[in-house]
Each structure stands twice: as C-alpha cells, then as structure tokens.
Nucleic acid binder design. Structure first.
Length: 436
RNA sequence: GGAGGCGUCGCCUAGUCUGGUCUAUGGCGCCCGCCUGCUAAGCGGGUUUGGGGAUAAAACCCCAUCGAGGGUUCAAAUCCCUCCGCCUCCGCCA
C-alpha cells in the first residue's frame, strides 16, 4: 500500500509510476475522489457522534440528580424525572442518526481502502519501463563454457548420477514432484549449509519459520494477489508459503521495531510450495520448475533512507554466493511491468544453462520500500518520537533445485562426472560427483 | 480433543459481580523542568496508538482504541455472542 499523502501531494509521480508499469493510471484519480468522499463523511459522522455523546452524558447526570433527590426526599423528583426522560429521548434520536452516518462512513472508507490497495508501489527512478523483455543487463559475469563434448541436460546427468528421480516423484505426488537421492540430496543440503554459513558471516540472524500461515499474513505480504500460485489448506484455512519471505515479513507485523542500532537482518531456510498453475508446458523437463523446493532467504527491515544501500548489499551477497558456485551469470534490472505490486525495484541473477542456451533466474532481490510495511503495519520510532513505516527488502541466497540444474550442467565432465566448486566442497565432502 | 482460569494505554496494577463524574486508578520505567558544586534523593509536569479537523508548522479541538469482531443500551473496560492468544489440569502423541 502506498501513502495517501503522496497521492494527494504528488499525484503526477504516482501516475508516472503506474504508466511505467503499464498499469491503470486513472486509478490515481479514483483514489483521490474516494479519499475526499471518505473524509467528508468521517467529519460529518464524528461531529454527530460528539453531539450524541454529550447528550448521553447529560442523561447520566440527570439520573444521578434524580437518585439523590429520591434518597434525600428533597428537590422536585417529578421535574427531574421528566428532564432525564427528555434527555434520553433526544439521545435516542441522535443515536439512530449516528448509526446511519457511521455505516455510510464505514462503507466509504472501505471503498477507499480497496482502491488504494490496488495502487502498486512507486517505481524507483532508473528502473527500466516496460514489460518482461525490457530488462536492462547490468553486468555479465564469466563466459558460457565451450564444451569439447556434447553436454547432457541436468535430468540425464542427474539420473546417471542417481541424484534425481522424477518418476517416483510423480508416482508419489504427481507431476513437478521429484526425489533427490544420494549426491542430489547431499547437494541440496550442502547448498543450504553453504548459504547459511555466508548468511551468518554477513550478520544475518537465522530463524526457523512457519511454512503454513494465516490468511492475514498471506494477504499482508501481497501474495494473495497472485492467487493462482498459492496452495491453500481448506480444512485449516492456512496457506503453504512459496517462500520464507512471508513468515519473515509477518514476523514483526503490528510492531514498532527499534532500528536505532541499524537494520534488522534475518535469514531462514524453508521448504517452498508453488502451484505453478498456468505454467503448463513450460520447463516441464526435470527439476527446473517444480511445486516444492528448498530456499534460504534473506530479509531486511531498515529505514527508508537505508533501503537503496541495503538492496545493493543483498545483491552483493547473492553475487558472492554465485561466484562461489563458479557459474556464469548475469545481473538484470527487472523492468517496471515485471516487478510485482510490492517491489519498487528488483534485481535478478540469472545463471547460464548450457542445454537451454539461455540465462535463467536463480536468485532475485526486491526493494519493497515502505509498501509491504504499510500493509503489515510495521513501524519504527524516529528521533522526534513519531512513528513511521519501515522499509523491507528480501533476497534469495540460494535455492536447491535450480542451482543443482546449473551446477550439473555447467560443471559436467566428459566422463559423466561433475566437478564440485571449491566453496561447496567443505559442505559436500568431495570435489567430484561420480555415478553411484 | 476435554475441563477451568486469564487477556486493561512500555512493564506491573485498580476498576468488571452491581453499566453512567472513568476525562481508565496507582506504582515502576522513561522524558522535560525546578532545586543542586556533581550525582542521587526531593518537588512539579508529561508519557498508548490510529484517524478527522485546524495550522506555515505547532499549540489546540474532535472521533476511535481496555486481545479481535459483532450485539444489547440514550450510555459498555463492565452485560450477551463469536473468534484469537496465553496459563493450569486431564487425555493423546514424535
């Protein structure tokens, strides 16, 4: 959610942001109209309520006097009784009116709230305009490898190594499920251990988090807007999270956090669940696009002023991890139309996948500025004692499945074995993976 | 899963039975001021969070807020209903 004050004071900025995303510009004027309507309604209702309260209070006073008069036998009990009754009648009339105006004000406030939630986050200056294909490549690291033999794809390699078993995954759970076995399972664990060790080195606090969350948490992080990708457990009314970002963002919901000692940096490894609905026919081979994988995620709470620097920090850490895996990759500045509603800027790291002849997304980091915090009501207290919304950022350290794809394909050798990059060796306990 | 208890503005706490001077009590902590060679003590004042109005900005005025949401009533921390969380006991269990 963006700040209504910003919409009021600088509507052109909001319009420009919507335009860059290819989103609806007229929403800005709808929001402004709804805001005005709602404020007029609130003012009317509140002044009426103030009247009602003061009349109602006089009923109490009258009753008090009446009781006193009755007890002592002094004073005109009848007159006092009449006064009390009259006040009560007037209060009852006002109460009915107040009820009406309150309902109207509530309705208009709801309409306003629904509209402003539709506005996407303000895109940061410099983000390329346009859609999915309009990204800007910031840097390319390493070179796609020249093979002096015909490279195999990750599934063929994985099966030969006894590392990936799609058939049994499908048998047990259906399509896009899999088993990792032997070296495959060990690679998954090693990648997470590698990520966790770097996370701690970089000053992140590790958490073990819930992967089933309430509708409120899911909605607050904005993931319910992308409904088709989310698993919902009807019997318990809980959602399976597609990333631990959900729990990490929900962690400080409704809190006023202390950022005086610097940003709060958290990391969590969790199983991630994605329906991948609507991706039929896409990436159907192997474990590139699956319903379940494991991911170590970073999450940062900081002041809005620190957000851009923290975003660069997350990108640096992601690159550090990929460098360690010795993969060729590029960094892209994702275009406005491909950001998702919460992000103001997003950098993806895409690794080279030899048998696809393409760079594919391995990690991604988003700067959500105050958009997510506003929805989740996460604030900090400034030096002036006033509260303000914090900025949130998230980034992938590593997942297991896609890096395994990239590692197997890029580091395969003519004899069917796979070289293990040095950084991973301590966690895997070997420098080469051979057929089991 | 069953039974019972509890949830008050940072923390503790009064108020809930018996609805109305409750403008939610008091203490601790914190902040400002006075006093003071310094510190402490003492004294005085302030101290939830949203929202609306007012303002150059404040001061200020108003509305809501006693776990959340409904209801009853002229009036709800207080009565009724639903939900959530915590604690105790019982059952079950890796």
């Amino acid at each position: 959610m963006i700040d209504i004050l910003l919409v009021r004071e600088n509507p052109d900025l909001v319009r420009a942001s919507q335009r860059a995303r290819g989103a609806d510009e007229s929403l800005v004027d709808q929001v402004l109209a709804a805001d005005e309507k709602r404020r007029a309604s609130i003012t009317e209702f509140e002044s009426l309520r103030a009247q009602q309260k003061s009349v109602s209070k006089s009923v109490g006073a009258a009753m008090g006097k009446l009781a006193g008069a009755r007890k002592s036998g002094s004073g005109d009990v009848e007159t006092l009784q009449q006064e009390a009754d009259e006040a009560r009648t007037r209060a009852a009339e006002l109460a009915a009116k107040v009820k009406q105006r309150e309902a109207a004000a509530d309705q208009e406030d709801k309409e306003f709230a629904a509209l402003i939630r539709e506005l996407d986050n303000i895109v940061i200056d410099g983000v390329p305009a346009g859609g999915e294909d309009d990204f800007v490549t910031l840097e390319t690291v390493g070179e796609p490898r020249e093979f002096d033999f015909e490279p195999l794809d990750h599934l063929t390699l994985g099966e030969r190594l006894g590392a990936i078993d799609m058939e049994r995954g499908a048998k047990v759970s259906g399509s896009r499920f899999y088993f990792l076995k032997g070296a495959g399972a060990r690679l998954s664990n090693a990648l997470m251990a590698y990520a966790q060790s770097i996370a701690v080195e970089e000053g992140f606090t590790p958490l073990v988090v819930p992967t089933l969350v309430s509708p409120a948490t899911m909605g607050g992080t904005g993931y319910l807007d992308a409904h088709e990708d989310v698993y919902h457990l009807e019997s318990a009314d809980l959602y399976l999270t597609g990333t631990s970002e959900v729990a990490l963002a929900g962690y400080h919901t409704d809190e006023i956090i202390d950022l005086s000692a610097g940003p709060l940096r958290y990391t969590a490894t969790s199983t991630c669940y994605r329906r991948e609905a609507g991706s039929y026919g896409k990436d159907t081979r192997g474990i590139f696009r699956v319903h379940q994988f494991t991911k170590t995620e970073m999450f940062i709470y900081c002041t809005p002023e620190e957000a851009v620097a923290e975003h660069q920090n997350l990108l640096r850490i992601e690159r550090r991890l990929l460098d360690g895996l010795e993969l060729p990759y590029r960094v892209i500045d994702v275009a406005a139309g491909d950001l998702g509603g919460s992000a103001a800027r997003k950098f993806d790291c895409e690794a080279w996948v030899p048998t696809q002849g393409k760079y594919r997304e391995l990690t991604s980091t988003s700067n959500c500025t105050t958009y997510q915090a506003r929805r989740l009501n996460i604030r900090q207290r400034g030096d002036d004692g006033k509260t303000s919304f914090v900025a949130t950022l998230n980034g992938t350290m590593l997942t297991d499945t896609r890096p395994i794809v990239a590692l197997l394909e890029n580091h395969q050798q003519a004899d069917g074995s796979v070289r293990v990059p040095r950084a991973l060796q301590p966690f895997l306990g070997t420098d080469v993976i051979r057929p089991a």
